[in-house]
Design a protein around this nucleic acid. Sequence first.
DNA 1: TTGTAGGCGTTATCAC
DNA 2: GTGATAACGCCTACAA
Lengths: 344, 344
Amino acid sequence: MQYITIKDIARALDISVATVSRAFNDRYGIKKETRELVLRKAKEMGYRPNPIARKLLQKQSLNIGVIVPEFINSFFSEVIIGIQEILCKKDYQVIIMQSNESAYLELKNLITMENSMVDGLLISLSKETKNIEALKQLIDEGFPIVLFNRINDTLPVSKVIFNDYKWALFATEHLIEQGYRKIFHFAGPTHLNLIKDRIRGFKRAMEKHRIPYEKDQIIETGILMEDGENAMEALIQKNDIPEAIFATNDPTAIGAMKVLKKHGYNIPNDVGLVGFSNSKMAEIVEPALTSVEQPTYKMGKTVAELLLKQLTSKEPVDSKTIVMDGRLVIRDSSIKKLPLELNK
Amino acid sequence: MQYITIKDIARALDISVATVSRAFNDRYGIKKETRELVLRKAKEMGYRPNPIARKLLQKQSLNIGVIVPEFINSFFSEVIIGIQEILCKKDYQVIIMQSNESAYLELKNLITMENSMVDGLLISLSKETKNIEALKQLIDEGFPIVLFNRINDTLPVSKVIFNDYKWALFATEHLIEQGYRKIFHFAGPTHLNLIKDRIRGFKRAMEKHRIPYEKDQIIETGILMEDGENAMEALIQKNDIPEAIFATNDPTAIGAMKVLKKHGYNIPNDVGLVGFSNSKMAEIVEPALTSVEQPTYKMGKTVAELLLKQLTSKEPVDSKTIVMDGRLVIRDSSIKKLPLELNK
DNA sequence: TTGTAGGCGTTATCAC
DNA sequence: GTGATAACGCCTACAA
């Protein structure tokens, strides 16, 4: 591949490279005819500006790094689409890396990104991440970073999160309103903020409705389907069957559903179920799973816009935290059938 | 962010930039002590080489573009993980773009990639793509491209595909072996090679087992769950109920399943079902869906390796087509229950 | 309005 | 073994 440069154009037209350069940039300071001449010739020769040269000069890579735990599940894929939507328009390129939920890989990604001179970073922490020193240092150096979804409260940067507390509260309240009382919460890794918030929401709902609950009704399960299966299996072994479960995400809810069905329990009549994230799977399982929908795409756009603001404004931008709202998608898994319907 | 350059190091040590540069590159041609001195100082000053300057000099961006129809469903996400696995190790960065199954957007992505001077391109065509002129031209110019999964036969480049014919044949044969005779095929957009191959496989299986079938047992449905729903709904309206359906992917199979169940049909006893791609959803629906598993991750790695070979070898590399194998994951949706079991 | 020249950070080719 | 210096492709003072 031989690329045409402004030198080639300059030579072809017997003018200086400066003039050619001006034709593309300076809207003034160049004679209209020259400008048009250059532009025509450039098109004819198939010239395309070399972005790398420009990047070297402007000291920016126009690359933004995105580090997410994974993008197999649609949650992060959808966020990424939102991110790209905004950044591509501004000629940024998005480099996506997965931490695979590993703190080690996350750090490695971080370093790779740093070395590759990305202009900014959008990060959702792995479930393992506890040590945030490297991140903190980067932030302290003034490197533009926005955290989203899986954040760490103590880091002084802009953040975009979901109102996990509120929607965990609503989700639990929904179960209460359906008449369920002995409600369990399958929680994820409790050192994550968003998991803590969901637990808080669960507790608040129970307290608000004056429903007593035991500590062990909140079970730390992990975030995979198997985790939900295992937790449910353990409860069944103990013969400690909940009336309903509010699970911290869809996979664990579906895992629980699987095991419950296997053991002959009817959902929603014996056990009600609510998940979180409203994945594609929630629509497909039977009964369809009630779940909290999160504005993934919009979250992506918001994160990107926040970073963009930091990147473009010359003065340091105050970091702020944007809290996004969702909605509860109510499906069969949490709506007790009336006796009438049952008889059908 | 102020970056340290080799100039800074040179100045600090009162030596020339050439020597500093050599310390990082030439393993010889520099005194050991000087080398160590430079390395130590560099570390101390927090020096990191500027990849952009290097790229400018070597005339390569170390960026690889990947264009896929979407990455919400896990198929392409998994392929991308394989791609990254290989390319990141070789210091390439991967730029991912989605065509959203739109030929227009695909072309736009292609142009963006071209302008951003990626060193190579990995492409899976959108379902709409018919006009391949732009791609053809790029290939003719010698631009390194590898196609995968959704390919176009006529383009003279390396390709990585799945053995759709064989596994469509096996999938259909599996249904035949289970005793199903009136088997329908829900096909996707028939101008895609992989869809054609799956249709061929279906036909071959039927012919091999001397099962007569009508043309309208092959239905072009699209690739979404709704497409499967609509096609099934239409069949039910016509009261033309298949004994089994081999669907071109999991979503359409699951769409059909949904509608069949709604109308009171038992799967697998009234209607057998087989999908394609073995998505997460296949495990979760009820009954679990028999589906053809494709080696997505390995496909990604293979595609990337093929491109890498082109990128590194100096002589033009012969383009070849690699055909990958999978397996049929047999689940409940296609295994007729014996009367004994039915009585339970 | 146009051209000359210097520089972005690196590597490579010469001399010395 | 080391140091000037010229690239890579582009932009931008400054001079003409």
